[in-house]
Computed example of a mutant assay.
Amino acid sequence: MKKTSLLLMLLILTGIGATISCEPDDICPESTPTTPSLIIDAYDVENPENKKAVTSLLVGGVDNDNVLPGYAIVSATQIILPLKTDADTTQYVLMKGAFVNNNGTPDDTSDDYYDGNTDIITINYTREEVYVSRACGYKTIYKNVTLTVEPENNEENWIKSRQPLNDNQSVEDETETHFNIFH
């Protein structure tokens, strides 16, 4: 009986000790800032103080058919773009006035494609890994960010100009605009 009581007491104390020494769950809270996206606001080129929606906007990757979620023919005054964490350049196709071209065969969707006024933007940057926490790991911040429109100085480009909000623009915060485009 003494051995059973002693064993039971030992198990209880061991359990309490383990409970007291436990670490909180290693779950990264949603409120923790992680790798930020690039934020671009769109303005009217003829009245640069006024925001102007890009109508029928489609955003996709270069050299693939993937449309960025949330940007399949929408109207937007703000464009939020994730940047690559494994390269120093990210490119996107931004299509204004986008529509689905049925290629003259409305009953056959296999040959449909997106059409519209296409500009390609190239975003260059240097990456820096920053430790967030044990649960969240690291996040990438982007320094010396530049944005160019290709082809440069083309009259057919719908993006007429672009402007960083700061010299030596960085992308560290996902709550502030980083570039303005004028169209």
Rank of each mutant, 00 (worst) to 15 (best):
Lys52Arg: 12
Ile120Cys: 12
Cys28Ala: 07
Ser37Tyr: 10
Glu23Trp: 07
Thr4Ser: 14
Glu23Met: 10
Glu30Ala: 15
Thr105Leu: 15
Phe99Asp: 12
Asn180Phe: 06
Leu8Met: 10
Gly116Met: 02
Ala76Trp: 03
Ile181Leu: 02
Thr175Gln: 08
Ala98Tyr: 00
Gly70Leu: 09
Asp86Ser: 06
Leu81Met: 03
Ala98His: 03
Lys139Met: 06
Lys3Ala: 15
Thr105Trp: 11
Thr19Pro: 08
Tyr131Trp: 12
Arg162Ala: 13
Asp25Cys: 12
Val62Trp: 03
Lys3His: 08
Tyr125Gly: 01
Lys52Gln: 14
Thr109Asp: 15
Ala135Asn: 07
Lys160Pro: 06
Gly60His: 07
Tyr125Thr: 05
Arg162Leu: 07
Asp41Leu: 01
Thr140Lys: 07
Ser170Thr: 14
Pro36Val: 07
Val59Trp: 05
Ala53Glu: 09
His183Leu: 05
Ala72Lys: 10
Ile80Leu: 04
Thr19Ser: 13
Lys2Ser: 15
Glu30Lys: 15
Tyr113His: 09
Ser37His: 07
Glu128Ser: 05
Asp86Tyr: 03
Val62Asn: 04
Leu58Val: 09
Asp86Trp: 00
Tyr71Trp: 02
Cys28Lys: 00
Glu155Lys: 05
Val45Lys: 02
Pro82Met: 14
Leu38Ser: 11
Ile79His: 01
Val171Lys: 07
Leu58Met: 11
Ala18Cys: 10
Phe179Thr: 02
Ser31Trp: 08
Thr175Arg: 00
Ser21Met: 13
Arg127Thr: 08
Leu58Trp: 06
Tyr92Ile: 04
Glu152Met: 06
Thr109Phe: 09
Thr4Arg: 14
Ile141Gln: 05
Pro82Tyr: 03
Met9Lys: 11
Gln91Thr: 07
Gly17Ser: 15
Thr118His: 11
Thr146Gly: 04
Leu13Phe: 12
Ile120Val: 11
Asp112Tyr: 05
Thr32His: 04
Asp112Val: 00
Ser31Asn: 14
Ala76Pro: 01
Val132Asp: 08
Leu94His: 04
Leu11Tyr: 04
Ser75Ile: 00
Thr148Val: 10
Asn50Glu: 00
Pro82Gly: 02
Ser170Tyr: 11
Val93Gly: 07
Gln169Pro: 14
Asn166Ile: 09
Glu152Leu: 12
Val59His: 06
Ala87Ser: 12
Leu57Met: 10
Ile141Val: 15
Asp44Asn: 06
Asp63Lys: 00
Pro151Ala: 13
Gly104Glu: 08
Asp112Arg: 05
Gly61Gln: 10
Ala98Asn: 01
Val62Ser: 08
Tyr114Arg: 02
Ser37Val: 14
Asn64Gln: 02
Leu81Glu: 06
Pro36His: 03
Asn124Gln: 13
Asp88Glu: 03
Pro33Ala: 14
Tyr138Ala: 06
Leu58Asn: 08
Gly70Arg: 05
Pro29Trp: 01
Glu23Cys: 11
Pro48Thr: 13
Lys2Trp: 10
Ile181Ala: 01
Arg134Glu: 15
Glu128Pro: 02
Ala53Arg: 08
